[in-house]
Simulated assay, not measured.
Amino acid sequence: MKRRNPMISHWLAPLALLFLVLSGCSSPQVVNRFAADTGYKGAVNLPYDRKLGLDLDVYYPPQASAAPVIVFFYGGRWTLRDKSEFEFVGQALASRGFVTLIPNVRKYPDVRFPEFVNDAARALRWARDNAATYGGDPDKLFVMGHSSGAHIAALLALNEEYLKKVGGSRAWLRGMIGLAGAYDFMPITAPDLRDLFGPVDRFQYSQPIFYVDGRNPPLLLIHGRNDEVLSVSNTENLARSVAKAGGPVETVIYDSLSHNMVIGALASYLRGRADVLDNIEEFVVRISKQPRSARRQLDLRATPLQQDDVDGVEAQPLPTPEPVPDSEPVTPMLLTPVPASSP
């Protein structure tokens, strides 16, 4: 049998992966196959809530010591995916010196909003309590997410009620990183999402933008204008709202990146496509070194937002957001299958 030239295989692999990601045909598990498998350690299926059967995976540099800690929540329309599909994210962040935790949270239709955010808060508590075991510094704790996972991360950073329920506060967080996130997506029209976030009079509580008060930890919001799943207006609107309230927020907006590619660019073979990982690293390292009292003004990169309604506007105090009501029992409903690139 004719042997394949390894140089050709090495050249074709990133092109094949790029095609799969751009076409929306790939699951994260496919991207995992192209991720580097050296340079980091892992501990998988660690329980953070035994009663609910919830666990997480940890990826960390072999010689980590007092390293920043990132808790990453994956996307999947609040209904799909598993932490095992995002090994490439753990590898990417560990390769830059960060202890990375990727939890599973409960999903719809087993639970409705806000139960999966409450799960995320418990995972954050576990990260804070156990980060030092893996060389992490609990005082350098960041929350990060993609798509619907960024929605969860943003709620933890903007609505302190979730962390209060687990004995904490937003003071736990050094920063939040959102990739192509769902922050301002009303009106909610899809039948499954109306059930997930319902009843109608509670829809506003599902929107991270609703909780902006200017007292958030620093935010880094990354999005692509070529996003076919979640409009870039989610990031633009949240950034403007936080800036007006006097909170620290930065944005990186790419003209050509799709919804899948914003997260796919973290994979080792695709990092040349966009500097998403570089921007995350710079933000985490810089913020980790800053005193907690340091505050930053809006800093826009890549394609600038229109700031006519930001510059020169004095920040006004906003009313204290109401706590999110506890969810009520729900009878599960059948879902229409959703595409792999759903939020």
Rank of each mutant, 00 (worst) to 15 (best):
D192M: 09
D278I: 10
A153F: 07
E115W: 03
G24H: 15
V310E: 03
R273I: 14
R112C: 15
N279V: 00
Y269T: 11
K83S: 03
L158W: 09
D227G: 02
S65E: 10
L54A: 11
A340M: 14
P62F: 04
P329H: 00
R225G: 05
L173V: 00
H146P: 05
V313L: 12
V71T: 15
A243S: 09
R33Y: 14
M261I: 10
K83F: 03
L17D: 06
G135I: 04
A16T: 15
R170P: 10
P47L: 10
S27D: 13
L298V: 03
G135Q: 04
A294V: 12
N118D: 09
I8Q: 12
V89H: 14
L52G: 06
V338Q: 13
G175V: 08
L20V: 05
S341H: 12
R122H: 03
F116S: 08
N216M: 00
E328L: 07
V117M: 02
P343W: 10
A123V: 00
E322S: 03
A131I: 02
S241P: 00
V166G: 03
L156C: 04
E281I: 02
R96Q: 14
N45E: 08
P325K: 03
H151A: 11
M333K: 12
F142I: 01
Y40M: 01
R194S: 06
R271L: 00
N234D: 09
G178E: 11
L124I: 06
R81A: 12
L56N: 12
L141Y: 01
F34I: 11
G39K: 02
R202E: 11
K83R: 11
P47W: 08
M176L: 05
P217A: 00
P47G: 08
L305P: 02
A67S: 15
V30D: 09
Y134S: 00
V30I: 15
H151N: 14
V284S: 00
L266S: 14
L173F: 01
D55L: 08
V30H: 13
D110T: 10
P62L: 06
I188T: 09
V330S: 15
S341G: 09
S258W: 06
K51P: 03
